[in-house]
Write a protein that binds this DNA or RNA. Sequence first.
RNA 1: GCGCCUGUAGUUCAAUGGAUAGAACAAGGGUCUUCUAAACCUUAAAUCCAGGUUCGAUUCCUGGCAGGCGCACCA
Length: 570
Amino acid sequence: MLSELKQQLIKALYSAGVTGEIELVVPPKSEMGEFAFGCFTFAQKNRLSPPAVAKELSEGLQGAVGKIDMLEKVEANGPYVNFYLNNKLLAERVLNNIKPENKEKNGKKVLIEFAQPNTHKAFHIGHLRGTITGESLSRVMEAAGYDVVRANYQGDVGMHIAKCLWGILQIRNLKSEIRKLSSINEKIKFLGDAYVAGATAFESDEKIKKEIEEINNRIYGRDLEIKELYDETRAWSLEYFDGIYKKLDTHFDRFFFESEVYKRASQIVNEFLPKGVFAFSENAIIYRGENEGLHDRVFQTGAGNPTYEAKDLALAELQFKEFSPDQIIHVVAREQTEYFRVVFKVLEKTLPESLGKERHLPYGWVSLKSGKMSSRTGQVVLAESLMDEINKKVLGIMEKSEIKNKEAVAEKISLGALKYSFLKTGIGNDIVFDMEESVSLSGDSGPYLLYIVARINSILRKTGGGGLLAKLFGKTGGLPEKVEDREKQLLIKLAEFDGVVLKASEAKDPSKIAQYLFTLAQMFNNFYHISPILKADKKSKAFRIRIIKAVREVMVSGLNLLGIETVEEM
RNA sequence: GCGCCUGUAGUUCAAUGGAUAGAACAAGGGUCUUCUAAACCUUAAAUCCAGGUUCGAUUCCUGGCAGGCGCACCA
């Protein structure tokens, strides 16, 4: 909401004689005003010293005081022109304009593809980061006005499944063993063990390697004998994934599967092979990326099966056909960066309409402090075990608490802690994961933010929700004689929210929201400890209640953009 | 070997080329008869190295060094 004011200040600077691009900054200290203009570039262009320019400009701008809303003082400070706002007017404007849910559509459609787990394999913390990031990004994009299609692309054909099925087929009395599996967790554990067995044998034994490749061909060939086992185990995985999505409070508008695109994938490869897009190499069909500064990739194996890259060509075709998006964002781990470069290049040839619309949004690698994570060896941190672990810690802290629905509240706090821990780091940065330290419950953490809301709720309960005061002072809430500096800081922070959402959507990075909310929370806590509310005089009390309600509103909607649900008390 | 990415307090992270490089955790010292101590206040602590561009570089460029990832029939 301060962008309008900024525009006016910029306009005033132009009329005062500044040329070129003008950007206003927020000074590092509150004594320096609310906005500032650094005169470096402009001064240099005119061969003047920045402080001299600042001085002259501030003199020329004195006339703007009183004409521009809220502007109280313009002053030169070294090479900067500093703008000061009137506290009372600022308070009034901000408090009357808090509407974090104000969303106008921009008419653009973006398809966001995320989560992408493979059936028959574990859902580990890497998937967890991708899912949490994708959901948050979806919400941020919606808040910025985009029409969002949430898509998930699950890998349900390919070698990893052949490995898993081979492992299962080694079990004697298979049918009765399977009957023993009652819970979904047991079934997933069963699949995980089978996969590890298959993957290990695949690498150590040439004969078994052949057997597994044969199973792979049978899966692609829809062999009826293997189909029954395939269908059943596939269903287990999907049920398991659904449970996780539900728990994470995420949903998808469309589930794409590799099994629905692999036939078309082969067609595309064979259609464009004679056109020179692909070439044969040692029986396989490849794309010669090296000719274009990329690297070669296999699109069809010697056995005649389409690879992941070929399937992505067919997937893109399907996604454009079904949704006609203006942009497709693949939220996928960073190690796929160069892979996507090649695939997008090929797509330009097989699907010209994709040009400029496909984008890989890489999120950083999640590694373990205790060593490298690998589902092949079974050394992984599973999503569910991590969630359980956090939940235990939260319940430990809440031991003495006597609030209602403790278990349910603990669940929400745990999830908030988990999501925040992944989202607070810049999206592209690697995370070194440590079970003990990574999901923090104090300091820069999810619970810290939830705590703000719980505290505000508590205060509001004790003041009758402020309804009585609102009646007493009318809609304006009766501004006090003097608006304190820290109150002003808090108000300005609140006013920055919509700008932060925009920034996060442009950068496609939810961590911008997380960082903003943390700063807001710190400022609130500082305010909370210094400025009493219940004991303040009538006018200050009404004013402060309006502030904390505004803080709550922004905090709740900001957390919602991160996919985090708030709690009434904790 | 080639390519891509990353090097900031003990640790995990911030900082459109601009005002004194900010936080959190861990460490030391304080604050609950007063709106929830999952909090607050406070002390100490950092830009990998060498050049260059610039009035100004954590940021841009070059070269080192260190780490991660990717490079053919897996996804």
